[in-house]
Design a protein around this nucleic acid. Sequence first.
RNA 1: GCGAGGAUGGCGGAACUGGUAGACGCGCUGGACUUAGGAUCCAGUGGCCUAGCCGUGCGGGUUCAAGUCCCGCUCCUCGCACCA
Length: 821
Amino acid sequence: MTQTVSSSEARHAERYSPGDVEAKWRSRWREQGIYEVDLHDDSRPKFYFLTMYPYPSGDLHVGHWYAEAPADAAARYRRMRGYNVLFPMGFDAFGLPAENAAIRAAREGQDVHPATLTYERIARMERQYDQMGAMFDWSKKVVTCDPEYYRWNQWFFLKMYERGLAYRKESYVNWDPVDQTVLANEQVIDGRGERSGALIERRLMPQWHFKITDYADELLDFTGLDWPERIRVMQTNWIGRSEGAEVVFKTEHGDDIVVFTTRPDTLWGATFMVLAPEHPLVSKLTTPDRAEAVRAYVERSSHMTELDRQAEAREKTGEFLGSYAINPVNGERIPVWIADYVLMGYGTGAIMAVPYGDERDFEFATAMGLPIRPVVRPDGATGPDDELPGPWTGPGTIVNSGPLDGLRHNGEKGRANPAIAAAIDHLESIGAGREQVTYRLRDWLISRQRYWGTPIPMLYCDECGIVPEKEENLPVVLPADVAFMPTGESPLKHHPAFVNATCPSCGGKARRETDTMDTFMDSSWYWFRYLSPHDDTRPFDPELVRRWTPVDVYTGGVEHAILHLLYARFFTKVLRDLGLVDISEPFTMLRNQGIILGADGEKMSKSRGNVVNPDDLVAQYGADTVRAFLMFIGPWDQGGPWNYQGIEGVYRFLHRVWALVVDQEAPAEPGPDADPSAAATELRRAVHKAIKEVTEDLEAFRFNTAVSELMTLANAMGKAKPHREALGDAWTEAVRSLLLLMAPFTPHVAEELWERSGFEGSVHLQTWPAHDEAALMAETVRMAVQVNGKVRGQVEVPVDADDAAVLAAARSEPNVARYLA
RNA sequence: GCGAGGAUGGCGGAACUGGUAGACGCGCUGGACUUAGGAUCCAGUGGCCUAGCCGUGCGGGUUCAAGUCCCGCUCCUCGCACCA
């Protein structure tokens, strides 16, 4: 790494010195409170610019800068456009890392409390954020581990419980053996815990859930939202809506097996049934001679992790239960099997197997020697109906299917498909099924067996059962004095004073729920709280919510595509149905930044030693350079590897601008052929082109090209500078425009140069410049030049040039001249 | 396997509705100023058998004109993945 230029700065007192400039303006802005937003000011239109609040990990890393500096530039731009901009910041302060740190410390005999640790880290990060020069309005700060915040989590929980949207249910859940807690489906990636990376186990436990599935259809609707396509696709896939039918198969034991299928038209090809190993009917339907084999299979699959199951994908295993079910459409007696390729968590946990029409069923039938019956004739297929090869999942004509024979399966889903529509009608007429829609989405499991989260405000009373805490008793405060040991149970469970409580209903003895809420609960409504962060009578001020929400622009990482962004949408709809807000979607526009990688192209991590520390960079180059460089490095949504050398270019650019504006030395003598009026026109053109381009780039979140436009303008001004005396107002106008355009990107140096140039007020409170189309367009026009019918070059001529002038210009173009000769 | 996005100089990347590549920056080369320069400034910088030709992953096509449109491939990245 190079060292600072302090030695040369000493000689040239007027050189750009970011350290001095930035410290000076940060303290002045703070004194003036220029970033404090008056939420009641309705003299200007509002603009709510939100960027995802961070987890207080302790130190700001370059990824935070990459996420937030461009967002700050975009927010500053909106403010200069005349909006009253709210750009708040807070901390997602509950969560496992702090608790795990406390546990580690406890093992070493030290006493570190997650709260102490978290508040220390928040203070440190706030100081680091200050360095960035962002226009965050810290007076609206939200810290989710404050009881004044999480009491409202509890309050919402009670409201949702009243409405049946929060419920307790025993089911198979994802158990993370490292973090010692259950996780939501959304937090399990490839069979591993999203945070810990541990292989997830399945456990049957009673847990609290939110009924997000009630909103599945509404969550599929993105109408009116300006969100990236890929996020919408990811959410749509996650919700996984399937249209089809529910079909009831009677068994010889009197129990019905209910299945879901998207292909009821292939019902006549169902030659066996398969239940998930966990299916409740398995033991009832197992005959004594099959009991041992079935028990062994169930046992084996219960020990398998999700990953094991995936590793064995395609290799079909299973056992025959010994009993049979009746196919309702043809009365056929078909065997019932269990196999782990059928998942308890989807549909009804049971399927009708149509080996001809489904690749998985086909593999299973082949492996087990079960019959395969063709039911769809592909277009152009030859040979008798009974000898069609299969599997065939595409369009064709229905065969071997009684009343459906001859109908068309056109490849469409649901009733849009004539064969499926007919099959559903037939099922309904014989009373064996009905149309049905199934979702992949499961209810949101919110219980966590951990300490550092919001206590779930429920109690268990021997007399009354499950009882909600009374509203007036909120918040249920997290006790400070607990032992931090990973026991697989919440540490709260071992805190008698917390557990033992009185029943809010009968006044008798009751036990408090000791699980805490998923921290995604905290982030599901925090943007409402920024509007009235300290209101202790209600979660938010409805008047301000009406005025300020939805959020106009939300920025953050793609990693939250499903988790946070889906929950936030769900929660907003719940709040709407509770009558607390009147919007259905929280974030009108969403933009994602990419991930900034280490110089080696790998994800930054301490173990790889490729972590870039923003504090060091700021010390060396100043915050303005770091900000502008992160924006310049490439398309924001793309991220990319860190390049140490590139930052020098941005640093030089700021030095050049400084010299351009501050340097009072007599400009170099203009050359003898200098034409001041042409220079002024040229400069004016450069200024207005820059205004136009930077404006468009900021609207479109193209920060990289915006910064390059600033450089281009500075270069043009460098060329014009020798004529400065002659340029007069044009020069002053250029300086003024350049500083206005730079203000969102490099706020400190823009402010300093604004002051040094003698312009009034703060550059950040000025109106964004508008470009003059005439200055851009009227001067010249590009024309293609054809010679003998072939285009041979391009010339740039004044728009009012006559034919002779155009011809002369064409002749002077070297390439064209060659062809004319 | 399915879905989405991408492939442009030594590098990061520009290029609006097809308009005659490589903006901007890094790096590199030369020069100026210097005791020195890894500081600063100026100039140059796609390639080549340099009257000119060839160049945007590969192969075709449409067009006066293709990085941009069409057809067929290869590779990369990111999602999803036994979802019935």
